[in-house]
């Protein structure tokens, strides 16, 4: 099935004086997917998001969100897109419910409808019991969940989350990500989220885009990205042996599927083309060494990320 592109970015560039924050970015996000925008701080993720919402003007390039150009019709885009900024803030002296109702009123949602939706959303994000408490009593994680409810009250087609997991404890992150996934599944909502926490994003994203210094250096499903990057040695075996003698390493390297071996005391990292764990184990045992640990490793985003930064690929 060919999916419709809900966000299309082509040749997008943003310059602040001499600094190029976003450099000829071309990217598309399909309707109904969760897309992760990954990159270190200052890579241009937030700038890109601001341009998607029409809050910042691109220096060059074209953007289409739901078929609308946000630079010219920011209103229409803001009606269809929910944006949860990094470190979202609320009116602390109002209750969570009133904050939601205020947002609803700004979106011209009729009062009775707004109230119904707000209550439903508060239930969905697990804040029903705190609905009438002032926001100043909320924890960071609760505010983030309220933020999610806040952007959902206008029933957007796309939600954009800027660093949604920042500063939340691991349990809070897990709940938030589960909630995002649920929304995506139930309502077919498109989600674009930016993060520098690779591991977290990995769990829920259908596709990711890697962002470094304003450039998109790779985009695709995480598995494909890993394969693309690690064509030569897609499999990594972690081995712990004693003694890790030079002869043993030489013998392992002699295996035709092994591309290289890195040693760190008793730990060996063996990069290979084929899953040859059994053969390696035999080799080790035959050399009279003691095998304490052997595991096969799939590449996660951390490795992908790491490679980009150290290898400059």
């Amino acid at each position: 099935m060919i999916k419709e592109n809900i966000i299309e970015i082509s040749g997008l560039t943003k310059q602040y004086g001499q600094l190029t924050a976003v450099d000829h970015l071309t990217l598309s996000v399909q309707r109904g997917e969760i897309f992760g925008l990954l990159g270190p701080n200052g890579a241009g993720k937030t700038t890109t998001i601001l341009m998607l919402l029409g809050l910042s003007e691109p220096t060059a390039g074209k953007i289409k969100v739901c078929g609308i150009d946000p630079a010219f019709q920011p209103f229409l885009v803001k009606e269809k897109v929910g944006y949860l900024p990094d470190e979202v803030g609320f009116y602390e002296n109002l209750s969570g419910l009133d904050n939601l109702l205020y947002t609803a009123a700004l979106n011209r949602i009729e009062a009775s409808v707004a109230e119904e939706r707000a209550r439903h959303l508060l239930e969905q994000v697990g804040l029903t019991s705190k609905a009438h408490d002032k926001v100043q009593t909320y924890s960071r994680g609760m505010k983030q969940r309220l933020g999610l409810a806040d952007i959902l009250i206008k029933e957007p087609e796309v939600i954009i989350l800027d660093e949604p997991t920042n500063g939340i404890d691991p349990e809070g992150v897990r709940e938030l990500l589960a909630l995002i996934k649920e929304l995506n599944r139930e309502k077919g909502m498109t989600v674009l989220l930016s993060s520098h926490h690779l591991y977290q994003v990995q769990q829920i994203c259908d596709r990711v885009g890697l962002f470094v210094e304003g450039k998109l250096i790779a985009a695709g499903p995480i598995k494909e990205l890993a394969f693309e990057l690690f064509k030569n040695d897609p499999i990594l075996l972690e081995v712990e042996v004693e003694p890790a003698s030079a002869q043993l390493i030489a013998a392992i390297e002699a295996n035709e599927h092994v591309t290289r071996v890195e040693q760190n005391r008793e730990r060996l990292s063996i990069f290979c083309r084929q899953p040859v764990a059994a053969e390696i184990a035999t080799t080790i045992v035959n050399h009279g060494a003691r095998l304490f640990h052997l595991s096969q490793h799939d590449y996660g985003l951390d490795e992908i990320y790491h490679r980009y930064f150290e290898g400059g690929m």
Binding site: L55, F75, V88, N107, D150, I151, K154
Partner: peptide, 8 residues
């Protein structure tokens, strides 16, 4: 920024 993300 939350206000500015609303259609106003």
């Amino acid at each position: 920024s939350r206000l500015l993300a609303q259609p106003i």
